[in-house]
């Protein structure tokens, strides 16, 4: 995965969300339509064209106290409307490491 932190131009190919890490504790969050953040991908605002993506990102960047390092990430939206991460990196961010952790939580 090319790190999205190197994301320069904003051009999306399919449904996308804005994701970041919450400032106070660092957990993975998604930008919601209500202009907040949620740890639940199903609550993320979905954008489908580059202008909307740009706007959502700009709004997210402005909320620097809420979450940090926002970027646009691809998702897949199933027929039932269920949102799934669009690549391995985002899958890992959502479900955690792919390796057993030494201590189960």
């Amino acid at each position: 995965m090319t790190s999205p932190l190197e994301q320069k131009k904003i051009k999306i190919a399919g449904p996308s969300v804005v994701t970041a890490n919450r400032t106070w504790d660092g957990i993975v969050v998604y930008r919601t339509a209500a202009k907040g953040w949620s740890a639940d991908l199903s609550e993320a605002a979905i954008v489908r064209n580059s202008d909307d993506a740009k706007a959502l990102l700009a709004e997210s960047v402005a909320d620097d106290v809420g979450a940090i390092g926002p970027y646009i990430a691809p998702v897949q939206v199933g027929e039932d409307g269920k949102i799934e991460p669009g690549n391995l990196r985002e899958q890992i961010r959502r479900t955690g490491v792919t390796i057993g952790q030494p201590v189960q939580v």
């Binding site: 890490n21 106070w24 660092g26 993975v28 620097d64 106290v65 390092g69």
Partner: peptide, 25 residues
């Protein structure tokens, strides 16, 4: 956390104290 420092300003200060941002946390 109060917003007095932006992330851009804070980043280098946290790095100097060993704090990175990773995928999950």
């Amino acid at each position: 956390l109060s917003g007095e420092l932006t992330e851009d300003e804070f980043k280098i200060l946290r790095l100097q104290n060993g704090v990175y941002l990773q995928l999950h946390a």
